[in-house]
Design a binder for these strands. Sequence first.
DNA 1: TAAACAATACAACAACAGTTGAAATGTGTC
DNA 2: GACACATTTCAACTGTTGTTGTATTGTTTA
Lengths: 117, 117
Amino acid sequence: MKTKHAVTLFEALSSGTRLDLFRLLIRHAPAGLVAGDIARLLNVSASNLSFHLKALAHAGLITMEKEGKFLRYRAEIPLMLDLIAYLTSECCSGNPAQCSNYREASRVEPAVLPDHG
Amino acid sequence: MKTKHAVTLFEALSSGTRLDLFRLLIRHAPAGLVAGDIARLLNVSASNLSFHLKALAHAGLITMEKEGKFLRYRAEIPLMLDLIAYLTSECCSGNPAQCSNYREASRVEPAVLPDHG
DNA sequence: TAAACAATACAACAACAGTTGAAATGTGTC
DNA sequence: GACACATTTCAACTGTTGTTGTATTGTTTA
C-alpha cells in the first residue's frame, strides 16, 4: 500500500459520522445496508449521508450495488485489513519479540474476534 | 475506546507528514528518535514537525521524554493496537467464520509480524 | 406519462488544517 | 553570565472539510 492511499483511508475514517457509518457497515457485513436505512440508523440527513458515503467509496472502504431503486452499501473489509497491515508491518524493525510485548500490553487482542455473548 | 477518541486517532494519522512520522517511530520502536533526527529524516521544518508531533502526542499516539537538551519521541504501540481492535472487534456482528474469510482475502495477515528476511 | 420516493449534486457558509517564517523558551558548555 | 543549539510558540495565510437547504437525477408503480 502506498502512503498516499493510506492517508486517504485514514482521512476517510477521521470524521465521527463516517467512522460510525463504516463501523455500522462492518457490523452488518457481509449483508450490507441500503442508504435509507443507514440514514435512519445514524440520524443523518440524506444529503449529508451521501457526502460521507461518497468519501468512503472514493477511498475504497465501501462498495455500492444497485438493488432496485435502492443502493446497498458494504464495508470492504479486506482493504481495512490491508490498512492495518500497512500500519503494523514494519513495527520494531522486524523485532517480533519486542512487538509481542506491546501486543500483550494492549487490552484487546486485535486479531481475535470477540465473543458477543 | 470511545468513538471520539478513535476519531482523534484517525485524524492524527490522516496527514502524510504525520503518517510518515508515526510509521518512522514505529520502525524505530522501542528506542524512539529525538526531534532533530526526525526533522532530518523526514525533511520537514522544525516548526512544522513540532506542530505534527504535538498533534500525535495530543492523540496519545506518541510520548515524549526529555533527554538532555533533546526530546525523544516514541510510538505508543499499545494504543495503536487498541485502535485496530476498535475498528475490527464488532466485525460481522460476531460471526467469526465470515470474518476469517475476509482475513484470507487480505494479502497480509495483520496480526502476524512479517519476516523481514 | 405522471406521481411518489430514493439518492445524489450543487451552492454557500463557518470552521478547521497545514505550512511558513520570525520570535521565544529552555538546555548544556565555556 | 554569554553563547550555541534544540525545540516550541505565535501570527498569518491558503486551502480544505462538514453541514445545510434546495434542485436534480433516476426508479418503481400505476
